[in-house]
């Protein structure tokens, strides 16, 4: 995709969203590195995709799109829109791809199609920034999207020797309150089999 095509594709996206971003809020948790994050970045992202799909089964709101002011439409099955390596390429994952297993998914993710960027996002967007070293993220949701999950780079955990990855979730504050978003993040961490860092201030 050359620059002109890329700009044209972005213009389409902006027109679709009427240039408006949703009132986006972001939450971030830390999850300890472990078996889920080894051995390669591709497999780590593949496992995250599978975990996110599992979490979407319980709460499909984050894969939904706002189709009108008072209407959201959730896909009948988990749909992911994955951007490995900082969104260098984009890939749509449905039931068939997610059912193929972790290894096959990792191989598929590494062979994403750069041309796919023009397609409007459908389902939950997953952005992998861990390979680029980004530690914090806050995005804006466009085009009526209701959620974006972002895997951030590993950093030394506040306590304990094992490092931890950041996991951020952008969500539409009009449609979802922080508690629900935090529970979705927790469900993703649980599906990953990853331990979360931190304890509640009520203690």
């Amino acid at each position: 995709m050359d620059l002109v095509e890329r700009v044209r594709a972005r213009a389409e996206l902006l027109r679709g969203a009427r240039g408006r971003a949703a009132p986006t809020a972001s939450l971030q948790i830390l999850v300890r590195a472990g078996a889920w994050s080894d051995p390669s970045a591709g497999e780590r992202l593949a496992r995250l995709c599978l975990a996110a799909a599992e979490a979407l089964g319980a709460d499909p709101l984050f894969a939904a799109r706002r189709t009108a002011r008072l209407r959201v439409q959730a896909p009948a099955e988990p749909v992911l829109w994955v951007g490995p390596d900082g969104g260098r390429t984009w890939l749509r994952l449905g039931r068939a791809e997610l059912g193929a297993g972790c290894q096959a998914l990792a191989a598929r993710l590494s062979a994403g199609d750069p041309r796919a960027e023009a397609t409007a996002p459908a389902g939950l967007e997953i952005l992998d920034l861990s390979t680029l070293g980004a530690l914090e993220w806050r995005g804006a949701l466009l085009g009526g999207a209701q959620g974006r999950l972002c895997l951030l780079a590993a950093r030394p955990a506040p306590s304990g020797a094992q490092e931890a990855f950041g996991l951020a979730l952008d969500f539409d504050a009009a449609w979802c309150e922080a508690g629900r978003a935090a529970r979705f993040l927790a469900a993703v961490a649980t599906a990953l089999g990853a331990e979360r860092v931190g304890c509640g201030p009520r203690s």
């Binding site: 971030q28 830390l30 806050r138 951020a168 935090a182 529970r183 993040l185």
Partner: peptide
């Protein structure tokens, strides 16, 4: 939101 393990929150 810290009671739900949230480490950082914006907006």
């Amino acid at each position: 939101p810290g009671t739900l393990g949230v480490q950082d929150c914006k907006a």
